[in-house]
Nucleic acid binder design. Structure first.
Length: 638
RNA sequence: GCCCACGUAGCUCAGUCGGUAGAGCACAUCCUUGGUAAGGAUGAGGUCACCAGUUCAAUCCUGGUCGUGGGCUCCA
C-alpha cells in the first residue's frame, strides 16, 4: 500500500495509507465530527464518505447541519421515498428526485394518483427503511451498461437521462440502498439509519423535465432535517405562514376581496385596503418628485399598430387583451412604456433636457394563465410604480445607481432586506448583440460601483433588454420579486427617439424601465404577510380606534374624533353598547395600533387613555399630545 | 393552460350510506351602562357554486361549466 499526504480538516497534514475511504481515514482523527458528517470534500469536490483515497488530498467534512449537508441528507431521503413508493405501488416509473431549497421531491409516472393517505403509508414504509439502516452503495457503469440495466428494469426515464448526457461522459454512477438502485451523481449519506427527521408534505403535478409539452408526472414533496426539533420548527413556520396569508388577512381585516362574479385575478379594494394603497401611492409620488421624476399618465388602451411598432404584439401578444373601438383594434396596455415614448416624442429634445424621468402609477392588464393567479401576488390587473428614464449613454451609470439607491431606501422604509440578480438575454428577444452586451455591461458596472453583491440569472432578461431584479426578504425569510431595472436600447430605436447633442447632431437616447415596489398589489400582499396584518402606524389604515366605556361618554368621544380627524389622524369610532373588554378584543383582532379609551375620568379631565397594540397603556393624555406621538412615528416610518 | 384536491349561512366548519340542512362567531332587536382580549335573551339568515343527466325524489350519484387551493410552466 502506498503512502499519501492528507491535509485534515483541522489544517494538519498526515501521512496515510492509500486505498482507505475518506471516512476511515478521518475516523481515527476526527472522531465525532465524522459520525455527524454526511459527506466530505476532497480537493474541493463533494464526495461520499466511502470515497477511496488514492492520492494526496485536502479533506473537509460536510456536516449534516450545513446547507450542503442538508442537501445531501434530503437527496438521500428522496431516494428512500422512491424505494418506498416503488415497493408499494405497482407500475411506478421513477424519474428524478433532487433536494431543493426547503426539502426535496421525487417525480413519478404512475397511472393511478397518490392521495394524502398514501403519503402517510409511504412515510411509514420509509421509516422501516430508515430503521433497517441500509448502507448507500455507489457503483459505476459504462453508459451502455447503464442503459441496458435501466431498460431491463423498465425505467425509460432513466434511459432517457443517460442518453441525453454529454458525449464525453462515458461512465455513470448508481446508488443503491436496500435493493433499490437509482441513477445518481451523489453523494449520499453513509446509510439510511442516519436519518432522524423527515416528513412528506404534499402531492402535485409536474411536467417531465419542466416542459409543458411533456407528460405530467406526479411529484411528492417532502422535507428532512438533522433533528426533530428543526423539523418541528419548519412545520411551525409553515403554520405561521398560513396564519399570515394575505388572502386570509385581507378578508379578516376587511382590506379587499376577489369575487367570482367580477372575475378571477381581479382585486376589489375595500375602504381600508384602498386607504392603505393610497398611503403607499402618496408616499411614492412624494419620493419620486423629490428625486427629479415627472409624474405622467397614459391611456389604458392604445391602437394595435403602436403595439406592433414596440414589439409587444410579436413578443407579448399571448399576455395581452384586445378590444375593438369604431372598427379599430386596440391593445389594453400590459406595460406603461408606450405613452411615455409618445411624451418624449412630443417635441425636439436637447441633451440639456436629459435625463427625463417619467413616473406613472400605471395600471396594466395581463392575461395570466388561470393556474398562476394567487390573491394580490398574481393578479390580471395591477398597478406598477413604473418609470421610464431616457438619458444619454453617459448618464446611464449614474441613473442606474440612483435607482439602486432608491430601491435601497424604499426597502429600508418598509423594513425589508433584499438580494440582487442580474438577468441576461433570453431566447425570444429583439435588438443587436452589441446593444445587449453594452446594456448588460452598464447594469453590471453600476452594481459594482454601488458595491452591491449579485447573482447572474442567465437568459432570464426581458425580451427588449437585460435586467436587475431585487428580491426582497420578508419577516419569515421568504423572497419576493419586486423592484427591477431593465435596460433598453430597442424601444428608443423602434420609436426613433432622438435628442440634439452638444455637437448639434441627432443622437439616440438610452432607456431604462424600472419599478421600485413592483406591482402595488403584490407589494401590499407582501406587506400584509410581512407585518402579519399589524401595520406600523404610518401605514395602518386605521391608526386609532376611540372606545367609550359607556354611552355617557359618546359626546366627548365625538369631540375627540373630530379633533383627531382634523389633525389628519386616521381613526374610527367604537361607541357601541358593549363592554370595554369586548371592544378591546375587537380592536386587537383588527390590529389597530392605538385604542383610545374614554370613560368618565377622561371626560372630566378632557383627555384620552391610549392603549397600544402590544397591550401597554400610555396613561391619560391630551388629544394633541397623542397627535404628536402619532405624527412623530409617521415621520420616522414607524 | 396542465395534474390533483376542493366548493354547505357574511366567516370557520359539521351533516345527509339519495327523502330540499345544523353549530360557533358575525348580524338585528331587547335587557344590561359594564375601565383594558368575548355580559345575557330572542331573532333573522342557505335554490348546499352553476348547468345538464340518472331517479318517484339530487346538496349527495354521473357529466360539463365556473371558481378556489397545492404544484408545474410562466411572471410584477
Amino acid at each position: 500500500m502506498e503512502k499519501i499526504n492528507v491535509k485534515l480538516p483541522d489544517g494538519s497534514t498526515e501521512i496515510c495509507l492509500s486505498g482507505k475511504t475518506v471516512g476511515e481515514t478521518l475516523s481515527s482523527r476526527c472522531g465525532d465530527a465524522v459520525t455527524s458528517a454526511v459527506a466530505a470534500r476532497v480537493n474541493g469536490e463533494i464526495v461520499d464518505l466511502s470515497y477511496p483515497m488514492d492520492e494526496d488530498a485536502a479533506i473537509e467534512l460536510v456536516g449534516i447541519s450545513s446547507a450542503e449537508g442538508l442537501g445531501v441528507l434530503r437527496h438521500s431521503i428522496s431516494h428512500i421515498m422512491a424505494q418506498a413508493v416503488q415497493d408499494m405501488f405497482e407500475g411506478v416509473r421513477v424519474t428524478i428526485g433532487p433536494s431543493i431549497e426547503d426539502g426535496f421531491y421525487y417525480d413519478f409516472e404512475y397511472s393511478d394518483t397518490f392521495t394524502p393517505e398514501d403519503l402517510e403509508k409511504i412515510e411509514k414504509r420509509m421509516r422501516e427503511i430508515v430503521t433497517a439502516n441500509h448502507p448507500f452503495i455507489r457503483t459505476e457503469m459504462s453508459r451502455e451498461e447503464a442503459v441496458s440495466f435501466f431498460e431491463n428494469k423498465g425505467e425509460p426515464y432513466k434511459v432517457e437521462l443517460i442518453n441525453d448526457l454529454p458525449n464525453d461522459v462515458t461512465e455513470v454512477s448508481l446508488y443503491s440502498q436496500g435493493g433499490f438502485v437509482d441513477l445518481c451523481r451523489g453523494p449520499h449519506i453513509p446509510s439510511t439509519g442516519m436519518i432522524r427527521a423527515f416528513k412528506l408534505l404534499n402531492v402535485a403535478g409536474a411536467y417531465w423535465r419542466g416542459d409543458e409539452k411533456n407528460k405530467m408526472l406526479q411529484r411528492i414533496y417532502g422535507t428532512g432535517f438533522a433533528t426533530q426539533e428543526e423539523l418541528d420548527d419548519y412545520i411551525r413556520l409553515i403554520e405561521e405562514a398560513k396564519k399570515r396569508d394575505h388572502r386570509r388577512l385581507g378578508r379578516e381585516l376587511d382590506l379587499f376581496q376577489m369575487n367570482d362574479e367580477a372575475g378571477p385575478g381581479l382585486v376589489i379594494f375595500h375602504p381600508k385596503g384602498a386607504l392603505l394603497r393610497t398611503i403607499i401611492e402618496d408616499w411614492e409620488k412624494k419620493e419620486h418628485l423629490r428625486r427629479g421624476y415627472d409624474i405622467v399618465m397614459g391611456p389604458q388602451i392604445l391602437k394595435v399598430d403602436l403595439w406592433k411598432k414596440s414589439g409587444h404584439f410579436d413578443h407579448y401578444r399571448e399576455n395581452m387583451y384586445f378590444t375593438e373601438v369604431d372598427e379599430q383594434l386596440y391593445g389594453i396596455k400590459p406595460m406603461n412604456c408606450l405613452a411615455h415614448m409618445l411624451i418624449y416624442k412630443s417635441k425636439i429634445r436637447s441633451y440639456r433636457d436629459l435625463p427625463l424621468r417619467y413616473f406613472e402609477l400605471g395600471t396594466v392588464h395581463r392575461h395570466e394563465k388561470t393556474g398562476v393567479l394567487h390573491g394580490l401576488m398574481r393578479a390580471r390587473q395591477f398597478t406598477q410604480d413604473d418609470a421610464h428614464i431616457l438619458c444619454t449613454p453617459d448618464q446611464l451609470n449614474a441613473e442606474i445607481r440612483a435607482i439602486a439607491d432608491l430601491v435601497d431606501y424604499a426597502m429600508g422604509v418598509f423594513g425589508f432586506t433584499y438580494e440582487v440578480e442580474l438577468s441576461t438575454r433570453p431566447k425570444d428577444s429583439i435588438g443587436s448583440d452589441a446593444d445587449w452586451d453594452l446594456a448588460t455591461a452598464a447594469l453590471k458596472l453600476a452594481l459594482e460601483d454601488n458595491k452591491i453583491l449579485y447573482d447572474i440569472n442567465e437568459g432570464d432578461g426581458a425580451f427588449y433588454g437585460p435586467k436587475i431584479d431585487f428580491k426582497l426578504k420578508d419577516a419569515l425569510g421568504r423572497k419576493w420579486q419586486c423592484a427591477t431595472i431593465q435596460c433598453d436600447f430597442a424601444l428608443p430605436e423602434r420609436f426613433d427617439l432622438s435628442y440634439i447633442g452638444a455637437d448639434g447632431e441627432r443622437h439616440r437616447p438610452v432607456m431604462l424601465h424600472r419599478v421600485i415596489l413592483g406591482a402595488i398589489e403584490r407589494f401590499m400582499g407582501v406587506l400584509i404577510e410581512h407585518y402579519a396584518g399589524a401595520f406600523p402606524v404610518w401605514l395602518s389604515p386605521v391608526q386609532a380606534s376611540i372606545l367609550t366605556v359607556t354611552d355617557n361618554q359618546i359626546p366627548h368621544g365625538e369631540a375627540v374624533y373630530n379633533q383627531l380627524v382634523d389633525a389628519g389622524i386616521r381613526c374610527e369610532k367604537d361607541f357601541r353598547n358593549e363592554k370595554l373588554g369586548y371592544k378591546i378584543r375587537e380592536g386587537q383582532m383588527q390590529k389597530v395600533p392605538y385604542m383610545l379609551v374614554i370613560g368618565d375620568r377622561e371626560v372630566e379631565s378632557g383627555t384620552i387613555s391610549p392603549r397600544q397594540r402590544d397591550g401597554s397603556n400610555l396613561g391619560s393624555m391630551d388629544v394633541l399630545d397623542f397627535v404628536s406621538i402619532v405624527n412623530e412615528k409617521c415621520d420616522k416610518y414607524e
